[in-house]
Amino acid sequence: MDLGTLAESWRSEPNTPVYIRPYLGELPAMGVADFLRWTLRNLGIAVPAAQVGELVEAAVRRSAGEARLPSAG
Rank of each mutant, 00 (worst) to 15 (best):
I20K: 07
I20C: 12
I20H: 02
R21C: 10
R21I: 12
P22D: 07
L24C: 02
L24I: 05
L24K: 03
G25C: 01
G25R: 04
G25T: 03
E26H: 05
E26V: 09
L27H: 04
L27F: 03
L27T: 02
A29S: 07
A29T: 06
A29E: 11
A29M: 01
A29Q: 08
A29L: 10
A29H: 12
M30A: 00
G31C: 00
G31I: 00
G31A: 03
G31K: 07
V32I: 03
V32N: 06
V32L: 09
V32W: 10
A33R: 08
A33N: 00
F35Q: 01
F35A: 08
F35P: 01
L36H: 11
L36S: 12
L36P: 00
R37H: 13
R37C: 02
W38K: 00
W38P: 00
T39N: 06
L40E: 14
L40Q: 13
R41V: 02
R41S: 12
N42T: 09
N42E: 11
L43A: 13
L43M: 11
L43W: 09
L43T: 08
L43C: 06
G44T: 02
G44K: 10
G44S: 03
I45C: 04
I45A: 09
I45T: 07
I45P: 01
A46G: 08
A46Y: 14
A46W: 13
V47I: 15
V47R: 08
V47D: 05
P48N: 08
A49F: 09
A50G: 09
A50Y: 02
Q51D: 14
Q51N: 08
Q51P: 04
V52S: 06
V52Q: 13
V52G: 04
G53C: 04
G53A: 10
G53I: 05
E54R: 15
E54A: 15
E54M: 09
L55T: 09
L55A: 02
L55I: 05
V56A: 11
V56H: 04
V56R: 15
V56L: 11
E57M: 10
A58R: 14
A58T: 07
A58H: 03
A58Q: 03
A58S: 13
A59W: 05
A59Q: 05
V60W: 05
V60I: 15
V60C: 03
V60Y: 08
V60F: 12
V60H: 15
R61I: 10
R61F: 11
R61C: 07
R61S: 03
R61A: 11
R61T: 13
R61M: 15
R62H: 12
R62M: 09
R62L: 15
S63R: 13
S63W: 05
A64V: 15
A64N: 08
A64G: 06
G65R: 13
G65C: 08
G65W: 02
